[in-house]
Design a protein around this nucleic acid. Sequence first.
DNA 1: CGGCATCCTCTTTGATACTG
DNA 2: CAGTATCAAAGAGGATGCCG
Lengths: 211, 211
Amino acid sequence: MRSYGQLCSVAKALDVLGDRWTLLILRELLIQGPCRYTDLANGLPGIASNLLSERLRNLETSGLVWREAAPPPVATTLFHLTERGRAAEPVLVALARWGTPLIADAAPDDAIRAHWVPFSASVFLRGRDPGGVPVTVQLHTPLGSSVIEITTDGVTSRAGAADEPDITLEGMPQVILRLLAGELTVAEAEEQGLVLRGDPALLDAFHLAPA
Amino acid sequence: MRSYGQLCSVAKALDVLGDRWTLLILRELLIQGPCRYTDLANGLPGIASNLLSERLRNLETSGLVWREAAPPPVATTLFHLTERGRAAEPVLVALARWGTPLIADAAPDDAIRAHWVPFSASVFLRGRDPGGVPVTVQLHTPLGSSVIEITTDGVTSRAGAADEPDITLEGMPQVILRLLAGELTVAEAEEQGLVLRGDPALLDAFHLAPA
DNA sequence: CGGCATCCTCTTTGATACTG
DNA sequence: CAGTATCAAAGAGGATGCCG
């Protein structure tokens, strides 16, 4: 990207992060952890191969990503975030929070990946203490199941199922996200097909907790 | 901007905010408040006039900006942020925090504007309670003077001088920013020409306060 | 002067095909 | 698997002109 040439921290950040696809590549590495090239391509439907390759090179030069090259005969490269790359997480969290209302009017043919859901959902739980941590939130969508775990150390999300979730949400990603974002009440979400098990009061605790 | 076509809140946010210049236009409106076209052009050195005009139109259709048209003979248009536009502030703050280390290796011919300084500086004081609020920080740079005020309501910045600042920092923007970011100690900043008046312990209070 | 619209050139992106 | 190569289309940058 061409530099804005402005002595301003926002402009300097955008000089590095502002290229098309760049922040979405960071999203993938933050959610999925170390990725192969094809894992990235798969998590970024629509990206052209030459762009992915070029962006990864730029991110490497900027010090956000490093590549671990396994020697032949394994011959697979793993792309990792550096500390500096992980430091961009608050940018993605802020974008995800701001972007959630836009989920409501998504195009019907939008691409979707199972691992996006727990991340988008978890951004509303970050920095909020609902009281009785640790809390485990189990999500079930037609795409698969995932778990969000809130501990004193922070919020993590992963695919799979938890042993004893405090609350379980089953439904379409759009509905779950808008519920967690506080855009829908539990009643409204249930009208849209959400099935909730566990203590609904826990959701209120999230929204009332200091951000 | 062409949509990413992904059902993910980050991608949806970038569909609206990801165009070149768009976030910097929001920066200007957040810092300066309602602006005329030429105020914006002035705060965005390097932007082409047709791009500014097009971006403003897009921001208007996306509901982030509205224009107040003063009727002739005044005949000046004021561009305002909507509530939704102001809601993007956390994105700018996250970018500014991440971008501050990049200020250190700025090009010598980078453009600079006086009103960028207190905003970039204030992002490190947001969400932190140094204890004895309200706190007033006075900045003096070769470009002009500005004030950052931290109250229980939040953090604001403005041009000008305060009556009784708790702390005064005088020096180059780069040095002030890196000091507030915690990248420089007071001693290191003073080596680089910073003059500090008031209680230096206040700075430690900022950095030790919970984020 | 303020707020653009037009025209032109150059760069970036996108889609697809191909390779070690 | 992890990319290059190629080429068409879209977008950005810069200059200038226009109109109240």
